[in-house]
Design a protein around this nucleic acid. Sequence first.
DNA 1: GTGCTGACAGATTTCAATATCTGTCATTCA
DNA 2: TGAATGACAGATATTGAAATCTGTCAGCAC
Lengths: 198, 198
Amino acid sequence: MNEVVVLTPERILEATEEVLRRYGLAKATVVDVARALDVSHGSVYRHFPSKASLRQAVAKRWLDRANAPLQKIAESTGPAPARLDKWLRTMIDIKYKKVCEDPEMFATYLTLAQEACEAVKAHKERLVDQVAHIISDGVKQGAFQAADVKTTARAVFDATTRYHHPAHCDDWKDPAKAARVDALLGLLLRGLEAPRKR
Amino acid sequence: MNEVVVLTPERILEATEEVLRRYGLAKATVVDVARALDVSHGSVYRHFPSKASLRQAVAKRWLDRANAPLQKIAESTGPAPARLDKWLRTMIDIKYKKVCEDPEMFATYLTLAQEACEAVKAHKERLVDQVAHIISDGVKQGAFQAADVKTTARAVFDATTRYHHPAHCDDWKDPAKAARVDALLGLLLRGLEAPRKR
DNA sequence: GTGCTGACAGATTTCAATATCTGTCATTCA
DNA sequence: TGAATGACAGATATTGAAATCTGTCAGCAC
């Protein structure tokens, strides 16, 4: 029963992540990936048309993994204000933990993400939709006021940029971060709960 | 009356900006600056101890210039909500115009600012103090609610990061920007005006 | 004396030769 | 027949020698 191990896109992505972790973004080559899988580099090109597309696929995988827990919170039930608070704090935490536990890999993913900016745009769109979903629930529950849910969701997402956008990750070790996040989320939630004028 | 033109720090900074504009950040050398002033490069080192300090001084000048109009608004009188709105929109506009009218020079200043991160920190502190000043007026006027003015000011500053931090300048040409800024500022002002719970 | 110069040492950058990698494809192997 | 190979051309990265720059300082000029 000598199972022949077939070369799948999934296995290639796995190996690519390993190579990126080991060699770093700048030094990782398609030849390295092929070597890790014990195949010729031509075989890799049978599954991915270019090195760029391989990198994109790695970035996409990473974004999908980051998305899953947030999706879950967005789709849960209960009072919207607490849910939005939790969703935002979870997003902030996910990013923070990622950068803490493996800063080099975080930098790698960051660069990959910049290259795959279309995938990032789609990812952000999904996140804003999740916020919109929560806010929409909040409006139904009478807890939130919002003229345009999607626009409001985007405003909330924009307002927290400093704590989830990787460009600001150097600031995340600020010891006053927790207090600043509290102040920011408090301000936003009060803004959502407030009656709109005119 | 053959006035002898003396070499001042101010003249050196002027020449340095000119050299940066002409050659770009990477290629600009102290020798170039000296040549532009028609002196030996040793003379430049009489006024600035190092190339790094010269760059820092250029960055500082730039930050100070950007600060002036905002300071004016912060110190003016009248209803705080409108003043805060104007202050934030002015800050956003200043950055936007800078990046539009000369993107290369903006990139240059951005790198200089990263090097002179202490000066940037001080600059941001000044800006937050201006926001705090406006919010403090708002509280006195009964228009705003704020437990801790400085913390609230920081939250407002943080919340607008996406529209004033240079890391996001690529997003500033988004045609929906104006609408998104409106939504964000509206949300923040409602949050400031809302009564605090508990 | 004060301010500038220009020659210098060590650090940094440039440049061109060399090595490695990306992406293709005719050929092999099961 | 369809996946994998490995040799290849053109693109990209590495390397080390040469050129340039940074920062210092003894000496010159006013």
